[in-house]
C-alpha cells in the first residue's frame, strides 16, 4: 500500500509519526461529518471531499487530487495476447467481479467499460460486486470469479510476473478515477502543522514517485 510506504518515508525525513485509520470512503465520510477527530482525509474519490468542502468541514483550498487510479482487467486462469481478445472471451458462464459501482469509483469505471462493450446488461446475473476493490480482487484471487476488474495499485510483483493474464484498460473507456485529499478543520495546534507538512510531501516529487511506483497516475 502506497500510504504505508509514504508514511514510512515521511517519518524517516521528519520524525513525525502518522497514524493511519483504514476504511471505506463512505464510512469515513459519515464519521467525519459526525465529528470524527481526523486531521487528513485521503479519499478514494473526489465526490466525498467535495461534499465535505461544501459543508465547510475542510480548511479552505486544501482539496487536491493526490493520485489517479487505473483500471485493470484480470483473468488469472487465461492467457491472451491482447485486451480485445480477453474481453471477447468473457462468456455468460463467467462470474465477473467488480467493485460496487455505487460505492467505488473503480466499480463505476468497470461498469462504464462493460457498458461500452455491450456486456453490462447481458452479464447482469453474473456480475458479482464487492464492497470495495479489495473484495473484487479477493473474489478473483480465490478462484471464485473468472474475470475481475481491479486497480492498478493491486498488481503485486507476483502478478506482474504472470504475463498475459492482466490488461490495462485505456483511460478513454472510463471517467478518471481521481482520488482527493483534504485537510480537515478538526486538525488543531501541532497536528495542523504536521498535517500541512504531510500534504506538501504528498505533492512533492518524492511523494509522487512513491505513489506512481504503486500503480497510480496523475491528472
Amino acid at each position: 500500500m502506497p500510504i504505508k510506504a509514504i508514511t514510512k518515508v515521511f517519518k524517516e525525513k521528519t520524525g513525525h509519526n502518522v497514524i493511519l485509520a483504514f476504511g471505506s470512503t463512505g464510512k469515513h465520510y459519515a464519521q467525519i461529518t459526525h465529528g470524527a477527530p481526523f486531521d487528513i482525509f485521503l479519499a478514494a474519490d473526489k465526490e466525498r471531499p467535495r461534499l465535505l468542502e461544501r459543508s465547510g468541514l475542510i480548511v479552505d483550498n486544501s482539496r487536491f487530487t493526490y493520485a489517479r487510479g487505473s483500471l485493470i482487467l484480470w483473468a488469472p486462469e487465461r492467457s491472451f495476447d491482447s485486451l480485445d481478445a480477453a474481453i471477447r472471451n468473457i462468456s455468460s458462464n463467467d462470474f465477473v467481479a467488480i467493485a460496487n459501482p455505487k460505492l467505488s469509483p473503480y466499480g463505476l469505471a468497470a461498469k462504464q467499460v462493460l457498458q461500452r462493450m455491450g456486456l453490462w446488461l447481458p452479464l447482469q446475473a453474473k456480475i458479482v460486486r464487492g464492497e470495495n476493490i479489495a473484495q473484487a480482487f479477493q473474489f478473483v484471487s480465490t478462484g471464485n470469479a473468472n474475470v475481475g476488474f481491479i486497480a492498478g495499485s493491486q498488481l503485486t510483483e507476483n502478478l506482474l510476473g504472470q504475463a498475459n493474464t492482466f490488461w490495462s484498460l485505456p483511460p478513454s473507456l472510463y471517467s478518471p478515477i481521481d482520488q482527493q485529499a483534504v485537510l480537515l478543520k478538526t486538525s488543531k495546534l501541532r497536528a495542523l502543522n504536521v498535517s500541512k507538512e504531510f500534504l506538501a510531501f504528498l505533492k512533492s516529487t518524492e511523494g509522487k514517485e512513491i505513489i506512481q511506483k504503486h500503480g497510480y497516475r496523475f491528472p
Partner: peptide, 19 residues
C-alpha cells in the same frame, strides 16, 4: 457477491445505502 434478486439481502442493501 451482492447480486440483486439472488444474493443481495437486506443487511447488505442497508449497508450499500449508508455507504
Amino acid at each position: 457477491g451482492n447480486i440483486p434478486g439472488t444474493t443481495q439481502v437486506v443487511s447488505i442493501a442497508i449497508y450499500d445505502h449508508v455507504e
